[in-house]
């Protein structure tokens, strides 16, 4: 089971910021989210959106095993 977190504008696009999904990989999870919500799928694929798996940035695909936390991070801006 993966705990999926959406930050910044991604949470506004989806209308949720945290949900649980059963998914074997990040690629599968992306496809599933895009199928369920086309606007979210586009937002997740837009430039500058990074993915963190268990609080570490991952590039490309990765397997989701056990209890994972997957966070989608749009471009960041602080201060």
């Amino acid at each position: 089971m993966a705990r999926v977190l959406l930050f910044g504008r991604l949470g506004d696009v989806a209308g949720w910021r945290e949900r649980e999904f059963e998914s074997p990989s990040i690629a599968h999870l992306r496809a599933r989210l895009a199928e369920e919500d086309e606007a979210l799928g586009e937002a997740l694929a837009s430039p500058g959106v990074q993915v963190a798996l268990d609080q570490a940035i991952v590039r490309g695909d990765a397997a989701l095993t056990g209890r994972s936390e997957v966070a989608f991070l749009p471009p960041m801006s602080g201060g």
Binding site: F7, G8, R9, D12, G48, L73, P74, P75, M76, S77, G78, G79
Partner: peptide, 21 residues
């Protein structure tokens, strides 16, 4: 300002928008 994991939203009379670097 541009790399730390924060997301910033401005709200005013014309609505809200997320700020990017």
């Amino acid at each position: 300002k541009s790399r730390a994991p924060f997301w910033k939203k401005e709200t005013g009379p014309d609505g809200s928008r997320w700020i990017e670097p």
